[in-house]
């Protein structure tokens, strides 16, 4: 196309298109940040708020954001490029409070200064590749949680030791299953069933005193108590759909875990 022969209306149109293209790139990066916030365990309202702020910082005159646990939908308006909409499907949620904190900082920087889309992408990549606890430390964490709660609920020291050892074994199982991309429910059934069997075995070989007290430590690792509480929090703060989704998920997971332990009790 010959650029010199354009009517003023056409040049204006081209300018709008260029502006829209740029806005689309920004929106994509902003959604990336929002998606990772949601996946690291941010509340729905925080994600919506952050996305809205970032859109305003990049010149949107109006931004409508709808976030549920499974999806983000954003429409931005501006007289310079009209209306733009992007949606994002979000799957899986795993608490990563360190990542959440870094994303929050990034969001603040984005709102205060101007980042190019490319710079934004790099900053995000840096956050995603931040160092995590090594596998050895993760084993220790599982043991620490299991034995702490075994004692917390009134178990003896031997119960706590047995619970800690079973916790370590469960971490190995969990890692193996997660490598195969299987459903979290499958992992929950296998871990709880094995946890129940091992607790029974531990008592039989006099490594612990009470199956219940050993199991409760391992159950705290598996049971979605935090998810249940947070789902109610979501519903109370007006995010009914997200809350309901998380609520049902928590109940199903709890049922699966109980089923796993019942299976173990049946075998023993």
């Amino acid at each position: 196309m010959d650029v010199t022969n354009l009517t003023p209306a056409e040049t204006e149109r081209l300018a709008v298109m260029a502006e829209a293209e740029r806005a689309n790139e920004y929106l994509y990066q902003i959604l990336d940040i929002g998606q990772h916030m949601l996946q690291s365990g941010a509340e729905v309202s925080r994600v919506e708020d952050s996305i809205r702020r970032m859109c305003f910082a990049y010149g949107a005159e109006r931004a409508d954001v709808l976030t549920i646990t499974a999806s983000i939908i954003v429409t931005i308006y501006s007289h310079r490029f009209g209306a733009l909409t992007q949606t994002r499907r979000v799957t899986g949620m795993k608490y990563d409070l360190n990542r959440l904190e870094l994303l929050n900082q990034l969001c603040r920087i984005v709102c205060s200064g101007q980042y190019e889309p490319e710079e934004l992408r790099q900053a995000l990549e840096e956050i995603l590749s931040a160092k995590q606890y090594s596998f050895g430390v993760q084993l220790f964490i599982y043991a620490l949680i299991s034995s702490s709660f075994s004692l917390f609920f009134g178990g003896s020291v031997m119960d706590a030791v047995a619970s800690g050892i079973i916790g370590i074994i469960l971490k190995f199982i969990d890692r193996t299953i997660q490598k195969t991309d299987a459903s979290p429910f499958l992992s929950a059934v296998l871990c709880s069933c094995l946890g129940g069997l091992l607790a029974g075995a531990a008592v039989r070989f006099h490594l612990g005193d009470s199956v219940d007290m050993i199991s409760i430590g391992n159950i705290m690792l598996l049971i979605p108590g935090i998810a249940l509480t947070n789902s109610l929090r979501d519903m109370f703060s007006g995010n009914t759909i997200s809350g309901l989704m998380r609520f049902i998920e928590a109940i199903l997971l709890a049922l699966t875990i109980a089923f796993g332990f019942a299976l173990a009790a049946g075998i023993l």
Binding site: Y95, Y133, V137, Q138, L144, I145, S148, M220
Partner: peptide, 13 residues
């Protein structure tokens, strides 16, 4: 200790 364990499980560094 339990809270410490969960904080570490949730990647607080």
């Amino acid at each position: 200790l339990g809270s410490l364990g969960f904080a570490m499980l949730f990647h607080v560094r």
